[in-house]
């Protein structure tokens, strides 16, 4: 029952910081764990990418959807089956920024015993919303890591909070993240075939994100936090002068601990698709297999016996039986 294991994990991830905060271990919660988690994240990420980069990539893969480049009067699909570097860049952009392959999701239903194929955009929509709002929230947090606040964070906050909802203003990205994460989680729980293939690996990051978003909203709107103290803590990390200001609340430590857990989790599991998508051979290789010879670098040397050598070796015999030869 991976869902219960995951829930247990999350309960611990919430209870531990609560316990530690009441025990007064603020240094552990506010400095040691987040900094260590960040280090694990960065080095783990690089390490995973390096391991992947060292792995052999066997072939250019020509079987992506879309017409490959061939004869001049046949229209090639440059974005889908590119033949050059720029086409690959376009395809990668569409994949990373717009989740194009998810957009083409289909679903299969049985109708009177035969399968019918329909379109389904839910996963694409909520998946995209999840990632986009996560990015926006991430960039907005730069206000805690820069002084004066970088204009990008300011502008984004202004757009994100463009609707005057409550005091302080509700950020639309917060709402979107909650809704999208809830959808992605419920989808795994409600749809039997998706539940069947879901592991703790799939639930835990989603639950962590829900916890992070929930505690964030709680701090912004209900159990208010002293922002100045939070920024003081953050600037302590990045200026290498760790400080532990007064006024950090238990909810804040839960928030921070869940973020740390997510950072540690990142290089260990499926979240590495962030780096991995750039390394996926069906996305990052141009389809020029028919125009260029690709030799796998790890191939064992093959003893080649060319026709010239063959003729050299058997010329006299060939002439003797009257076979034509290239060189006399």
């Amino acid at each position: 029952m991976p869902i219960f294991a995951s829930l247990l994990f999350i309960v611990i991830a919430i209870l531990f910081p609560l316990f530690a905060a009441s025990a007064g271990w603020h240094g552990l919660l506010g400095i040691v764990i987040p900094c260590a988690a960040w280090a694990v994240f960065v080095f783990g990420f690089v390490w995973r990418v390096v391991v992947w980069a060292r792995s052999p990539v066997p072939f250019r893969i020509p079987v992506t959807s879309g017409q490959q480049r061939s004869l001049s009067w046949i229209k090639a699909d440059a974005a889908e089956n590119p033949s050059g570097r720029w086409g690959v860049a376009l395809r990668m952009f569409l994949e990373v920024a717009l989740f194009r392959s998810l957009f083409r999701n289909t679903r299969t239903d049985l109708y009177k015993g035969r399968p019918v194929y329909g379109r389904t955009k839910n996963l694409w929509l909520f998946g995209w919303l999840f990632h986009a709002s996560f990015l926006v929230i991430l960039v907005r947090h730069l206000r805690l890591f820069s002084e004066p606040v970088v204009p990008m964070a300011d502008t984004l906050a202004a757009v994100d909070g463009m609707f005057e909802i409550g005091v302080p203003t509700l950020y639309l990205s917060d709402l979107c993240l909650l809704a999208a994460a809830a959808f992605l989680l419920l989808r795994r729980i409600v749809i039997p075939r998706v539940r069947y293939i879901s592991l703790a690996q799939d639930y835990i990051p989603l639950l962590l994100v829900l916890c992070i978003a929930g505690s964030g909203l709680l701090m912004r709107h209900f159990d208010k936090i002293d922002l100045v103290a939070v920024k003081e803590l953050a600037s302590g990390w990045i200026c290498f002068v760790p400080t532990l200001p007064e006024g950090l609340t238990a909810v804040f430590f839960v928030h921070l601990f869940c973020v740390s857990a997510l950072l540690v989790w990142f290089p260990l599991g499926k979240l590495m698709h962030m780096g991995g998508v750039f390394l996926s051979p069906t996305r990052n290789l141009a389809n020029d297999s028919r125009r260029r010879r690709h030799v796998n670098p790890w191939n064992a040397p093959v003893k080649v016996h060319t026709y010239e050598e063959y003729e050299e070796e058997f010329r006299n015999q060939m002439k003797a039986v009257g076979l034509p030869v290239d060189k006399e």
């Binding site: 960065v42 600037s235 200026c239």
Partner: peptide, 28 residues
């Protein structure tokens, strides 16, 4: 390509550090 990608990742992941580099961030 891998090198560039990792450089971009590291640059983004460490952005707050080098953005604040050398400057103090005094509490108002």
């Amino acid at each position: 390509a891998i090198g560039i990608g990792l450089a971009v990742f590291l640059a983004l992941a460490t952005y707050p550090f080098w953005h604040a580099a050398g400057k103090a961030m005094p509490v108002p």
